[in-house]
Lab assay of single mutants.
Amino acid sequence: TKKDTKLYCICKTPYDESKFYIGCDRCQNWYHGRCVGILQSEAELIDEYVCPQCQST
């Protein structure tokens, strides 16, 4: 049987260590910077990140 692979981001793909991720400070989920429109250089300046799903609630 195929091992359950945890899926990340709004694009629902397995973790890829070569890509940049940003963690939501509300739901603790991880998102590709590219998918949520945040560059790694911008993320370093953000104190708290809230993902699109949490922003809409």
Rank of each mutant, 00 (worst) to 15 (best):
D16I: 03
D16L: 03
N29C: 05
I10L: 13
I10Q: 04
E17C: 05
S41F: 08
W30R: 15
I38Y: 11
K6D: 11
Y21C: 05
R34N: 15
C24G: 01
R26S: 14
I10K: 07
Q28N: 09
T5R: 08
I46A: 08
D16K: 04
T5F: 11
T5Q: 12
Y49E: 03
E17V: 05
Y8R: 10
C27F: 01
L39R: 12
T1Y: 11
K19W: 02
Q53V: 10
Y49S: 04
S56G: 07
W30F: 15
P14K: 10
K3D: 10
I46P: 12
I38Q: 04
L45D: 12
K12P: 01
T1F: 12
V50S: 08
E48C: 13
L7S: 12
S18G: 10
Y8V: 11
G37L: 04
K3Q: 12
V36G: 01
Q40R: 10
Y49L: 05
C54Q: 02
E42G: 05
C24K: 02
E42C: 09
S18C: 05
P14H: 06
N29R: 11
H32L: 00
L45K: 13
E48F: 06
D25F: 08
H32S: 02
D47H: 15
Y31M: 04
Q55Y: 04
E17N: 08
W30I: 12
L45Q: 15
N29E: 05
A43I: 14
Q55C: 11
W30S: 13
Q55W: 06
P14L: 07
C9H: 01
S18T: 07
T57L: 03
G37Q: 07
Y31K: 02
P14T: 07
S18F: 03
E48K: 10
I46L: 12
Y21S: 08
P14R: 08
L39G: 09
Q40F: 07
I10P: 04
D25Q: 15
T57A: 14
W30H: 13
L7I: 08
D47A: 13
G33I: 14
C27V: 01
S41W: 07
C35A: 01
Q40A: 11
Y49F: 11
L39E: 15
L7Q: 14
Q28W: 06
D25V: 12
C9D: 01
W30P: 08
S18M: 05
D16W: 02
T13C: 03
R26A: 10
F20K: 07
T5S: 11
L7G: 13
G33T: 06
E17K: 13
E44I: 07
L39H: 04
E44S: 12
C51N: 01
K6F: 06
Y21Q: 05
Q53W: 06
C27E: 02
V36D: 02
I38E: 04
T13E: 07
E44Y: 05
Q53Y: 06
G37S: 11
C9N: 00
E44C: 09
L7F: 10
H32Q: 01
Y8N: 14
K6W: 03
C24D: 02
I10S: 04
C35T: 00
F20N: 12
V50Y: 05
Y31D: 00
D16T: 05
Q53G: 14
D47N: 12
C35L: 01
K12H: 11
S41C: 07
V36Y: 00
D16H: 03
E44R: 12
T1P: 06
E17W: 04
K19D: 14
L39P: 15
S41T: 15
V50G: 02
K19Q: 10
Y15I: 11
P52G: 13
D47M: 09
L39S: 13
V36S: 02
H32I: 00
I46N: 10
E48H: 11
I38W: 04
D4C: 05
E44W: 04
K19T: 06
P14D: 03
L39F: 13
V36C: 03
G23L: 08
G23V: 06
R26G: 14
D47Q: 15
I22T: 04
C54A: 01
V50I: 13
C54H: 03
Q40V: 07
L45N: 13
C24H: 00
D16Q: 08
I38K: 06
L39T: 11
K19F: 05
V50P: 03
N29I: 04
P14G: 04
C9E: 00
R26N: 15
R26D: 12
A43Q: 13
E42T: 05
T5Y: 13
D4R: 04
Y15D: 04
L45P: 05
W30A: 15
I10N: 04
H32R: 01
I22S: 02
Q53M: 09
K12D: 07
C51D: 02
N29Y: 04
L45E: 11
Y31V: 05
I46G: 06
E44T: 08
S18H: 10
G33D: 06
H32K: 00
L45H: 15
F20T: 13
D25G: 12
E48T: 13
I22Y: 03
I46W: 08
G23Q: 11
Q55R: 09
E42Y: 05
K6T: 14
Y49Q: 03
T1V: 08
G23R: 09
A43K: 13
I46H: 10
Q28R: 11
L45R: 14
E42I: 05
Y15C: 03
I22Q: 02
E17D: 13
T13F: 04
Y49N: 04
G37W: 02
V36K: 03
I38N: 03
S41N: 14
T5P: 11
Q53A: 12
E17S: 11
F20W: 11
W30V: 15
T57H: 08
E48S: 14
G23S: 11
D16E: 12
F20D: 11
Y49C: 02
P52F: 14
I46F: 08
I10T: 06
G33H: 15
G37E: 06
D4V: 07
K19M: 11
Y21W: 11
D4T: 09
D4A: 08
C51E: 02
Y21P: 02
I10G: 04
G33N: 05
G33A: 13
Q40L: 05
Y15W: 09
E17F: 12
V50W: 08
Q28T: 11
C27W: 01
L7A: 13
Y21I: 06
K6H: 12
C35R: 00
I46K: 13
V36I: 10
V50Q: 07
G23N: 09
I22L: 14
T5L: 10
L45F: 10
P14W: 04
K12E: 12
T1S: 10
G23P: 05
F20Y: 11
V50H: 05
R26Q: 07
H32Y: 00
P52N: 12
G23T: 13
Q55S: 14
T13V: 04
L7T: 13
T57N: 06
S41V: 12
D25W: 08
C9G: 02
L45T: 12
I46M: 12
D47K: 15
Q53D: 14
K3E: 14
I22D: 01
E44N: 10
L7C: 11
K3Y: 06
W30K: 15
L7E: 14
V50F: 10
H32D: 01
Y8Q: 15
D47T: 12
T1G: 09
K6Y: 07
V36H: 02
T13K: 12
I22C: 01
N29A: 15
R34L: 13
C9P: 02
E42D: 13
C51K: 02
A43E: 06
T13A: 05
T5K: 14
T13R: 07
G33P: 15
R34F: 06
V50A: 06
S41Q: 11
E48R: 15
C27L: 00
T13P: 02
R34Y: 10
Q55K: 14
T5W: 06
H32G: 01
P14V: 06
S41H: 08
K12M: 08
K12L: 09
C54K: 03
Q40M: 06
W30Y: 15
K6C: 08
I10D: 06
R26E: 10
C24S: 00
I38G: 04
